[in-house]
């Protein structure tokens, strides 16, 4: 009879194992040398270059950066670039009214670029074209023709393309910018890291 009871108890309690739980861990490790501004974490490197990492992991929330101040800002506060996951916008044309425009240089050595080249073409964000499958505005960073990343459809890994960008900011200054990582040291995607610094105009 006791065995019967044991079995009835086992069946009655079935499917009620304890819920699995993760180990207690903090979020992404914080770089002690970095300065935090909103979701942006920046630190200074040699030659006045800044390395910024943005936590762009939220799908529906854009993170806005003012290159002129180096600070995170609100959507209505003169931002230059905005980030959400792998998408990047600039505050001009279809995406905003601050007149920000961007040019791209292929195969350009980032360190060697000291001034805005004479022959680059700047573009503002434009309405979404038919080349890609999404409905975001197309721009120099993201379009059906070319993205700031290369995407491996087999491993679903994004890697920065060999591209250097020149951004003409909302305050009329020029910055060079290059993406160097899409993943954090822990492998978290959309922890976008880029180098940037101001250029002389021409």
């Amino acid at each position: 009879m006791q065995r019967w009871l044991l079995y009835m108890c086992l069946i009655a309690s079935a499917g009620c194992a304890a819920k699995l739980a993760t180990k207690d861990e903090d979020g992404e490790p914080i770089d002690a040398d970095a300065v935090q501004s909103g979701k942006f974490s920046s630190k200074s490197l040699a030659d006045a270059v800044t390395e910024t990492t943005v936590d762009a992991t939220q799908e529906t929330e854009w993170q806005y950066l003012d290159l002129d101040s180096g600070e995170a800002v609100a959507e209505d506060a003169g931002w230059d670039l905005a980030f959400s996951r792998f998408r990047v916008r600039s505050n001009g044309g279809e995406s905003g009214d601050a007149g920000v425009e961007v040019a791209v240089l292929e195969g350009q050595d980032f360190e060697a670029l000291e001034a805005v080249p004479d022959d680059v073409a700047f573009e503002m964000d434009r309405p979404d074209g038919p080349e890609d499958a999404n409905e975001d505005p197309d721009n120099t960073f993201n379009s059906g023709q070319r993205n700031w990343y290369t995407y491996d459809v087999n491993t679903h890994v994004l890697s920065p393309a060999d591209l250097t960008y020149v951004v003409h900011s909302s305050e009329g200054r020029y910055f060079k910018l290059r993406f160097i990582r899409y993943y954090s040291d822990n492998g978290t995607p959309a922890m976008l890291t880029f180098l940037w610094t101001e250029l002389s105009s021409h």
């Binding site: 993201n142 059906g144 995407y151 491996d152």
Partner: peptide
């Protein structure tokens, strides 16, 4: 070979 054309490329 990594795709240059972004998401949805054929491997």
């Amino acid at each position: 070979v990594a795709s240059e054309s972004g998401l949805g490329s054929t491997a």
